[in-house]
Amino acid sequence: MDAAWFGLIGVVVGGLISTLWGWLATIRQELADGLVGARLVDDDLARLETGSVGAAGHQERPAAQTWAENRVALAKVLGYQQWSTVSAVYRRSDPSSTHSWSGRDQEIRAAREALAPLAAGKRHVLSQRWRNLFVRHTGD
């Protein structure tokens, strides 16, 4: 009977280790995708922060394609406040938006600051990712 218990304990422990390993691999992949996305979006925002002026003499807007390709990865790893700060830049830049593009410098600077820990590397956001799992947003 003792051998049966050891076998059962071995199966349970093996299942827990396998589950934990899969969960950690998923989080690691999300962080890697988020890091790449943060760097690309940060690069786009850095271009805007320099005050580039387009061919028609208008202020350039954020690249919608860069945002569209990376927003899912960023949504998985950024906290709610960080997400709101970064996404606000892209929401305001929507051509159908009625908002003016004034105050963009502060928004861009805040978005770059929100992305900075993630763009710097995965080690800097592990604790943030852990906190994001347990912090619920209650609304604005």
Rank of each mutant, 00 (worst) to 15 (best):
A3P: 01
W5V: 15
F6H: 09
G7S: 10
G10T: 01
G10H: 03
G10K: 03
V12K: 05
V13G: 05
V13D: 03
L16K: 04
I17Q: 00
L24V: 07
L24F: 13
A25N: 10
T26R: 15
I27V: 13
I27N: 10
R28S: 15
G34T: 04
V36S: 11
L40D: 12
V41L: 00
D42I: 00
D44H: 03
R47D: 10
L48Y: 01
E49M: 10
G51V: 06
S52Y: 11
S52V: 14
H58L: 13
E60Y: 04
R61D: 11
P62V: 04
E69I: 06
R71I: 06
V72R: 12
V72I: 12
V72P: 00
A75Y: 07
K76A: 15
V77E: 02
L78I: 03
Y80R: 12
Y80T: 10
Q81D: 15
S84V: 07
S84K: 11
S84F: 08
A88N: 09
S93A: 15
D94T: 05
S96A: 14
S97K: 02
T98R: 10
T98A: 12
H99I: 00
S100E: 09
S102I: 11
R104V: 08
Q106D: 15
R109T: 14
A111D: 05
A114N: 04
A114V: 01
A120V: 01
A120H: 07
G121Y: 04
G121N: 03
K122C: 05
Q128E: 14
Q128H: 14
R131I: 12
R131L: 14
V135H: 04
T138S: 14
